[in-house]
């Protein structure tokens, strides 16, 4: 299953809710959620701990727009819009944590 997050991890509980609820699968961070995938942010350890259960992806155009393309956390896989489409088609279901 694919979980899509689009809210900043330090402003919204969307990512926390996802990590607390979902059992596993793919997580795709887009829009303001890409901050969760940056080195040195306060939630880094939390996301790192979830990497056993989830494969975490980040939409690179959104990360680059925010000037953080060079701060991607190790273990997070960068995807472009094509990769976004692939994730939605390779997963049977998708939950957007709006």
């Amino acid at each position: 299953m694919l979980h899509i997050i689009n809210k900043s991890p330090l402003t919204s509980v969307s990512l926390d809710s996802c990590l607390n609820t979902a059992t596993g699968g793919d997580i795709l961070l887009i829009e303001d959620a890409v901050y969760a995938a940056t080195r040195g942010n306060a939630g880094e350890a939390k996301l790192r701990n979830a990497m056993g259960r989830f494969k975490v992806h980040v939409l690179m155009p959104d990360l680059e727009a925010r000037g953080l393309g060079d701060r991607l956390m190790e273990g997070v896989s960068p995807v472009d819009y094509g990769g976004f489409v692939d994730l939605t088609s390779s997963n049977k279901t998708c939950q957007s944590w709006l």
Binding site: S8, L10, T11, M60, P61, E64, A65, R66, G69, D80
Partner: peptide, 23 residues
């Protein structure tokens, strides 16, 4: 304050999201 500090981040490149880079 809070996420507002991200507004001032250097190196914003918005071509990929087709949005005006106002930084």
């Amino acid at each position: 304050l809070d996420d507002g500090v991200y507004q001032l981040k250097k190196g914003q490149q918005t071509k990929g999201i087709e949005t005006k880079n106002f930084s």
